[in-house]
Amino acid sequence: MKAIKTLILTLVASFAATALHAAGELNLFGWSEYVPQDVLEGFTKETGIKVNFETYASNEELLSKLVAGGGNYDLIQPSEYAAELMIRRKMLAPLDKAKLPNLKNLDPELKGQVHDPEDNFTVPYMSGTVGIVVNTEVVKTPIKGYKDVFQAKFKDRLVVLNDNRELVTWALYSLGLPINEINPAALAKARPVVAEWVKLVKVFDSDSPKTALLNGDVDLGIVWSGEAAILWNENKKFQYVLPAEGAHRFIDILAIPANAPHKAEAHAFINYILRPEVSKIVSENFPYTNPNLGARQLLTAEQLANPASYPPAGAKLQTFRDIGKAAADIDKLVTDLKSAQ
């Protein structure tokens, strides 16, 4: 009898311990390869809050996990169009700005964007663009826009993102059509353009498009600006060009799901990451455009000179809006054209 009592007491005690411990936890669900380990460790060291880090590889993966109700995530990192959808579906918790004094460090240009006009739910983490990388040692002709990339003479010398919406977006840009109005008429116009383009591409790769460029398998690419920045760091022959017809800008944000169990810890983490010296670590690891002006002041001249991280002002940049079920139409269109080869 006594043994059983002891056992029960031990169990209760250990449950209590876990419960206490759980109060100091943060379940972060973020992109793979996007949050430096140093930042996570620094946060835990300073606050004692343990960070459980899980990763995803696409906004769609994030959405489906949240919709399926799996996991009790406290902090997520969607791109702006996914965040827009989540705000509309009331999947995000409003932010308590009193707990986020470091919001003052943010670039005002990135405030009040269409996905969250009042900035009630989201905080920009990093932003970037999708643009052209040119190996200037091989390609001597000037490359200014999509039409310059997709030329017959560059057949099998191209790498582009393996992302169907991106591909269609570039076609729409080159046609002068709005990129967020995906309807049968727009797709019908884009179709012949995309059909020609896919024939020219050597590699479709979203995860590491820089590899094919570095390996010398291709000379031109349309890639994430972060990838282009790494290429430029590697070798200055890789020049980044924002397409003249217009380019996709993405803003990856930080947000708290409506049902997050540890909202206070999530706020603490957001505020921590908004510190210039912390945000700087993110920039050093992932050279996208840092929206934190305080952090930018801490960057080196070379880091700031990277045209992929900080492209010259004046380019036409647009973010994606959620297109709902039209994503399936895009998927079918591109699948069809790719497999027609």
Binding site: A57, S58, E60, E61, S64, V159, N162, D163, N164, R165, V198, V201, K202, V203, F204, D205, A212, A327, A328, I330, D331, T335, K338, S339, Q341
Partner: peptide
């Protein structure tokens, strides 16, 4: 190079992109 989709890619796309 993900140039020519296979049925596995199509299925993957339905879950991760479309």
């Amino acid at each position: 190079g993900a140039k020519v989709p296979m049925i596995g890619n199509v299925i993957q796309n339905q879950f991760l992109q479309a």
